[in-house]
Amino acid sequence: LKGVVVAGGVLAGAVAVASFFLRNKRR
């Protein structure tokens, strides 16, 4: 169960970083 929580956190972080980079590329 702990691994699932960690994986979810990593996935959420990756999505946040990806969206951040996409926003920067638009400018």
Score class of each variant (00 low, 15 high):
1 L>C: 06
1 L>R: 01
1 L>D: 10
1 L>F: 09
1 L>E: 12
1 L>T: 15
2 K>E: 08
2 K>Q: 05
2 K>F: 08
2 K>I: 05
2 K>W: 05
2 K>M: 08
2 K>V: 03
2 K>H: 03
2 K>A: 11
2 K>R: 08
2 K>G: 07
3 G>K: 09
3 G>I: 07
3 G>Y: 06
3 G>V: 06
3 G>L: 07
3 G>D: 07
3 G>C: 14
3 G>S: 10
4 V>D: 08
4 V>P: 08
4 V>W: 04
4 V>C: 14
4 V>E: 05
4 V>L: 11
4 V>M: 15
4 V>S: 05
4 V>G: 08
4 V>R: 08
5 V>W: 15
5 V>F: 14
5 V>D: 10
5 V>R: 03
5 V>C: 08
5 V>S: 06
5 V>G: 13
5 V>P: 12
5 V>T: 11
5 V>I: 01
5 V>N: 04
6 V>A: 02
6 V>E: 15
6 V>G: 03
6 V>M: 02
6 V>F: 00
6 V>Y: 14
6 V>L: 09
6 V>W: 04
6 V>T: 01
7 A>Y: 00
7 A>E: 13
7 A>P: 04
7 A>T: 03
7 A>W: 01
7 A>C: 13
7 A>V: 05
7 A>D: 01
8 G>L: 08
8 G>D: 02
8 G>M: 06
8 G>N: 00
8 G>E: 07
8 G>R: 05
9 G>C: 04
9 G>D: 08
9 G>K: 13
9 G>R: 06
9 G>M: 13
9 G>F: 03
9 G>P: 07
9 G>S: 04
9 G>L: 07
9 G>E: 08
10 V>Q: 13
10 V>R: 12
10 V>F: 01
10 V>N: 00
10 V>P: 03
10 V>M: 06
10 V>G: 10
10 V>W: 13
11 L>T: 09
11 L>V: 03
11 L>D: 05
11 L>C: 03
11 L>N: 09
11 L>Q: 14
11 L>E: 09
11 L>R: 11
11 L>G: 08
12 A>F: 13
12 A>R: 10
12 A>H: 15
12 A>T: 02
12 A>K: 04
12 A>V: 13
12 A>W: 07
12 A>D: 09
12 A>S: 10
13 G>Q: 12
13 G>W: 09
13 G>M: 14
13 G>S: 04
13 G>R: 13
13 G>A: 07
13 G>H: 00
13 G>P: 07
13 G>Y: 12
13 G>T: 13
13 G>I: 15
14 A>F: 14
14 A>D: 03
14 A>E: 05
14 A>G: 06
14 A>R: 10
14 A>T: 11
14 A>Q: 04
15 V>F: 00
15 V>N: 11
15 V>I: 12
15 V>P: 10
15 V>R: 10
15 V>C: 07
15 V>A: 13
15 V>M: 14
15 V>T: 02
15 V>G: 06
15 V>E: 10
16 A>D: 02
16 A>T: 15
16 A>V: 11
16 A>R: 09
16 A>S: 04
16 A>G: 10
16 A>W: 14
16 A>N: 00
16 A>F: 14
16 A>Q: 14
16 A>P: 01
17 V>D: 10
17 V>G: 01
17 V>M: 02
17 V>L: 00
17 V>T: 12
17 V>K: 12
17 V>C: 06
17 V>A: 04
17 V>Q: 00
17 V>W: 14
17 V>F: 10
18 A>C: 05
18 A>L: 05
18 A>M: 14
18 A>R: 13
18 A>Y: 09
18 A>H: 02
19 S>L: 05
19 S>W: 08
19 S>G: 05
19 S>D: 01
19 S>P: 08
19 S>V: 02
19 S>R: 13
19 S>N: 08
20 F>C: 02
20 F>S: 06
20 F>V: 03
20 F>I: 08
20 F>E: 03
20 F>Y: 02
20 F>D: 02
20 F>W: 14
20 F>R: 09
20 F>K: 01
20 F>Q: 11
21 F>Q: 02
21 F>A: 06
21 F>L: 11
21 F>V: 07
21 F>H: 15
21 F>P: 12
21 F>S: 09
21 F>W: 13
21 F>D: 03
21 F>C: 14
22 L>A: 10
22 L>S: 08
22 L>G: 02
22 L>Y: 00
22 L>I: 13
22 L>M: 14
22 L>H: 02
22 L>N: 03
22 L>F: 10
22 L>R: 12
22 L>P: 07
22 L>E: 14
23 R>V: 09
23 R>H: 02
23 R>C: 06
23 R>A: 02
23 R>T: 05
23 R>K: 00
23 R>Q: 05
23 R>L: 06
24 N>V: 10
24 N>D: 00
24 N>M: 14
24 N>H: 00
24 N>R: 07
24 N>F: 14
24 N>Y: 14
24 N>Q: 05
24 N>A: 08
24 N>P: 10
25 K>Q: 11
25 K>L: 08
25 K>S: 04
25 K>R: 12
25 K>N: 04
25 K>D: 15
25 K>G: 09
25 K>F: 04
25 K>I: 00
25 K>A: 06
25 K>W: 04
25 K>E: 11
26 R>S: 09
26 R>N: 09
26 R>A: 11
26 R>K: 02
26 R>D: 09
26 R>V: 00
26 R>T: 09
26 R>L: 01
26 R>H: 05
27 R>A: 08
27 R>S: 03
27 R>N: 01
27 R>T: 11
27 R>Q: 01
27 R>I: 11
27 R>M: 05
27 R>V: 13
27 R>Y: 08
27 R>H: 07
27 R>P: 12
27 R>G: 03
